[in-house]
Design a binder for these strands. Structure first.
Lengths: 347, 347
DNA sequence: TTGAAAGCGCTAACAA
DNA sequence: TTGTTAGCGCTTTCAA
């Protein structure tokens, strides 16, 4: 009942191999026979069997997406649909399919990746996260399996790894400098998960800007939290309980910023009058906060698009050099930052 | 270099078919030989070739996810990561993989689905959206290919289709009644894309509640918009320009509500003092609006989980009856609704 | 330019 | 309980 290459061959009066060549659009087949075969295919409603192709071919034309473990709330960040949209866009262009990891824990994900790779389910992999000491990355590297990372490997020496990243250090530095120029000196930093590479980069940029400006970084102005929303809120409580409250906040992620702003709202601390905020990512909804937030657009779509691009290049030309792509970022000024107005009395 | 079943067979001193049976954990193989074979597999680092299996098997153990076209902003709704998490969870349990559609337009998606189905890339499909007159759904139905829909088919007569949905009509009705009980009479409705089934159900529920309460539904209190964020904001402008402003708003989607609240904020209309709002979905960030929004939790995770469950059941027992699963919803009261206080003067 | 035939790695009848 | 063998549907040498 399934239409195969043989059926087509019979109808078109050619050999199966000829049909195969027509599918691949081989130049060694004459136009007339191509036409004949194509008509037969249309007539029978032929579609090539994907598994048979892959088996004979040793190529699946699909790329595997490895997400952070989905038990984690990170997963719900609108960041992901948007990177996937980027990846998807490039993949579609080049006729690659997408296969998703489903593991909930690190171990499950690791096992899955192993199956994908050894079971020849995918031709390459995009890691949608980058964290410190990642088993999956080490495995892929040892296997010399094509993969690209969104973000960057923790170890700067891994020059053999292809990744697509923003200059997060620079972005954080600029943002801090911006706040300093607005007159802020008491600038706090609310970071994400500490074993995420991006968090570390943000913090370095933040500290660098402070030091350059002659401001001593303070331990109690730096808070990290795993969970996106709750984390943001707890951090605010901690910071606002300090005797010297910060006058500006740098927040690692737009979603966290929503939590932060909500908490400040409850405390009746006005943004930006009482406190300024800058955050990172510029996900779709970030312009919908009240007031709309100032944030760094990291071009999430491009991160995905380029990651797919690099990966497919790697797959098609195995010899090529590893690449490190930096996607430009851009600060989007909205309404959560304001020049510091010195108060006469302490708060 | 690839380790095959034959290599394992050789090392374990058995026939390839025996190895195959051990992989399938057939009960017709003795424990001792199973052990022997498993050791050989471990020793060689054997992983079954996925494509070869599928080809011989006529089963891929993967399910296809069809998203709404990703050109559309809908895609960025945190709704999707969450349904996928639900699907993923069940799929993983039952050892199914996930394959993603990448098409950007309706036609592209349709072509892809056809390839997935006829090319035997997946064993079944979950449609992550449900809209009026969907070609993809018709195709799947004609092919008698296993699929489930999140939401429901437009045509109520399609009793042969398995779907997982909320009682959206009821939810909208309840929410409207709630606002009426709070004293509101001028209740507006901001709906999503009009050819989405859920929008229609919401509107019916809304109108029913009004009619039951003896309130005449007004055309100018009902606005639809395609785009999630911008739409929300435009709708607010329209509604607030009416000579009789509504005192309460029912908004189809949490993300839209963010846009609505931002716009109201700009207009210095206070929520909930000047206007009450209820919305739908309860995505993760919905509790992070300022003030936190009252919304209907539709249990997105369960929608996905059950969809996968039904689908896999359909795949495994082809004879079973189509099922219609309704996931319970629950109104989450937060701080955007308030009893109407009659004003002495007009606004 | 086309055809014949071997083989990709696995499963599943059928035999033993 | 295990082995033998014929495919699954395609690609790709090799020959013509």
């Amino acid at each position: 009942m399934t239409v195969t290459i043989k059926d087509v061959a019979k109808i078109a009066n050619v050999a199966p191999s000829t049909v195969s060549r027509v599918i691949a659009n081989s130049p060694r087949i004459s136009e007339p026979t191509k036409e004949k075969v194509r008509e037969a295919m249309k007539e029978l409603g032929y579609h090539p069997n994907f598994n048979a192709r892959s088996l004979a071919n040793k190529s699946t034309k699909t790329i595997g997406l490895v997400m952070p473990n989905s038990a984690n709330k990170t997963f719900q960040n609108p960041f992901f649909p948007e990177v996937i949209r980027g990846i998807s866009s490039k993949a579609h262009q080049l006729e690659y399919g997408l296969y998703l990891s489903t593991g909930q824990s690190e171990q499950e994900i690791f096992d899955e990746v192993q199956d994908m790779v050894q079971g020849k389910r995918v031709d390459g992999i995009v890691l949608l996260y980058s964290k410190v000491n990642d088993k999956v990355m080490d495995y892929l590297r040892n296997q010399k399996f094509p993969f690209t990372v969104i973000g960057r490997p923790y170890d700067e020496n891994m020059k053999d790894i292809t990744y697509v990243n923003n200059d997060n250090l620079k972005a954080a530095k600029t943002v801090t400098e911006y706040l300093i120029l607005l007159g802020h000196q008491q600038i706090a930093f609310i970071g994400g998960n500490l074993d995420t590479v991006v968090t570390l980069d943000h913090m370095k940029g933040y500290e660098k800007a402070l030091t350059n400006a002659g401001i001593e970084p303070r331990k109690d102005y730096v808070v990290f939290h795993e969970e996106l929303q709750e984390g943001g809120q707890e951090a605010v409580i901690d910071l606002m309980s300090l005797s010297e409250r910060p006058t500006a906040l740098i927040v690692a992620d737009d979603i966290m910023t929503f939590g932060v702003m909500r908490m400040l709202n409850e405390m009746e601390v006005k943004v930006p009058d009482d406190i300024s905020i800058v955050s990172f990512n510029n996900v779709m909804i970030s312009e919908l906060s009240s007031p709309p937030m100032t944030t760094v657009d990291i071009n999430i779509f491009s991160l995905g698009y380029e990651a797919a691009n690099c990966l497919i290049e790697k797959i098609m030309k195995p010899g090529t050099e590893p690449r490190q792509v930096i996607i430009p970022h851009k600060m989007i000024k909205r309404q959560t930052c304001q020049r510091l107005v010195r108060r006469l009395s302490a708060q």
